[in-house]
Simulated assay, not measured.
Amino acid sequence: MTALGHHLLAEFTGCDATALADLQLVTDAMLRAAEASGARVVTHSFHHFSPYGVSGAVIIAESHLAIHTWPEHRFAAVDFFTCGQVDMERGLAMLKQALGAEGETRLALERGPLKPITV
């Protein structure tokens, strides 16, 4: 069976700490990243934690785009999962720029079905 979806985990380092702590900026950047990728936004939800960080997700027709930020570490973890024709590269490049990230590490996975672990 071929993969049902593609899952991209990205870690952004050296980000602008002020941007990572700004609920509206993170929300807007995530929505723009989803749209830039060609995804169809269904809904979204974001939350600012006190004193640090923002977490949230954009639900797209093709699956989801999620983020967790740590301004005190200038770090953001991003999770982009799609089972459709979405340009994740374009969306993540836009998000990286919006957060002022200096570095990026990625892990790409193909999803469905995973192989079971035998004990």
Rank of each mutant, 00 (worst) to 15 (best):
residue 1 M to Q: 15
residue 2 T to R: 14
residue 2 T to Q: 14
residue 2 T to F: 14
residue 2 T to W: 15
residue 2 T to S: 13
residue 3 A to G: 10
residue 3 A to V: 15
residue 5 G to F: 09
residue 7 H to S: 05
residue 7 H to T: 00
residue 10 A to M: 02
residue 11 E to H: 12
residue 11 E to D: 10
residue 11 E to W: 11
residue 13 T to I: 12
residue 14 G to T: 01
residue 14 G to N: 06
residue 14 G to V: 04
residue 16 D to P: 10
residue 17 A to P: 06
residue 18 T to H: 06
residue 19 A to L: 13
residue 19 A to P: 14
residue 21 A to D: 15
residue 23 L to C: 09
residue 23 L to T: 12
residue 23 L to H: 13
residue 24 Q to P: 14
residue 24 Q to T: 15
residue 25 L to N: 13
residue 26 V to M: 06
residue 28 D to S: 14
residue 29 A to K: 13
residue 29 A to W: 07
residue 29 A to P: 13
residue 30 M to L: 10
residue 30 M to G: 08
residue 32 R to A: 14
residue 32 R to D: 13
residue 32 R to L: 15
residue 33 A to E: 05
residue 35 E to R: 08
residue 35 E to W: 08
residue 36 A to L: 10
residue 37 S to A: 06
residue 37 S to D: 03
residue 38 G to Y: 04
residue 39 A to M: 02
residue 40 R to M: 06
residue 41 V to I: 12
residue 41 V to E: 01
residue 42 V to S: 07
residue 42 V to R: 08
residue 43 T to S: 15
residue 43 T to W: 03
residue 43 T to C: 14
residue 43 T to A: 15
residue 43 T to P: 10
residue 44 H to F: 10
residue 44 H to Q: 12
residue 45 S to C: 15
residue 46 F to K: 08
residue 46 F to S: 07
residue 46 F to T: 11
residue 46 F to G: 11
residue 46 F to W: 10
residue 48 H to I: 00
residue 49 F to S: 03
residue 49 F to H: 01
residue 49 F to R: 01
residue 51 P to E: 01
residue 51 P to K: 02
residue 52 Y to D: 08
residue 53 G to H: 01
residue 54 V to Y: 02
residue 54 V to M: 06
residue 55 S to P: 08
residue 55 S to T: 12
residue 55 S to C: 12
residue 55 S to G: 09
residue 57 A to I: 15
residue 60 I to H: 07
residue 61 A to D: 14
residue 61 A to C: 09
residue 61 A to L: 14
residue 62 E to T: 01
residue 62 E to N: 02
residue 63 S to K: 08
residue 63 S to D: 13
residue 63 S to L: 08
residue 63 S to I: 04
residue 64 H to G: 03
residue 66 A to K: 06
residue 66 A to N: 07
residue 67 I to P: 04
residue 68 H to G: 07
residue 68 H to P: 03
residue 69 T to S: 03
residue 70 W to M: 09
residue 71 P to Q: 05
residue 72 E to I: 04
residue 72 E to T: 09
residue 72 E to L: 07
residue 73 H to K: 14
residue 73 H to S: 11
residue 73 H to M: 12
residue 76 A to K: 02
residue 76 A to T: 03
residue 78 V to F: 00
residue 79 D to G: 00
residue 80 F to G: 05
residue 80 F to C: 02
residue 80 F to H: 05
residue 83 C to W: 09
residue 84 G to Q: 12
residue 85 Q to L: 10
residue 86 V to Y: 05
residue 87 D to N: 04
residue 87 D to L: 07
residue 87 D to T: 06
residue 88 M to N: 00
residue 89 E to A: 05
residue 91 G to Y: 02
residue 93 A to H: 11
residue 93 A to P: 03
residue 93 A to S: 03
residue 94 M to Y: 11
residue 94 M to E: 10
residue 96 K to D: 04
residue 96 K to P: 05
residue 97 Q to S: 14
residue 98 A to P: 13
residue 99 L to F: 13
residue 103 G to I: 03
residue 103 G to W: 05
residue 103 G to E: 01
residue 105 T to N: 08
residue 105 T to R: 09
residue 108 A to H: 08
residue 108 A to I: 08
residue 110 E to W: 00
residue 110 E to Y: 00
residue 111 R to A: 02
residue 112 G to L: 11
residue 112 G to M: 11
residue 112 G to E: 15
residue 113 P to Q: 04
residue 114 L to N: 14
residue 115 K to W: 09
residue 116 P to S: 08
residue 117 I to L: 11
residue 117 I to K: 08
residue 117 I to P: 11
residue 117 I to S: 07
residue 118 T to S: 03
residue 119 V to S: 05
residue 119 V to W: 10
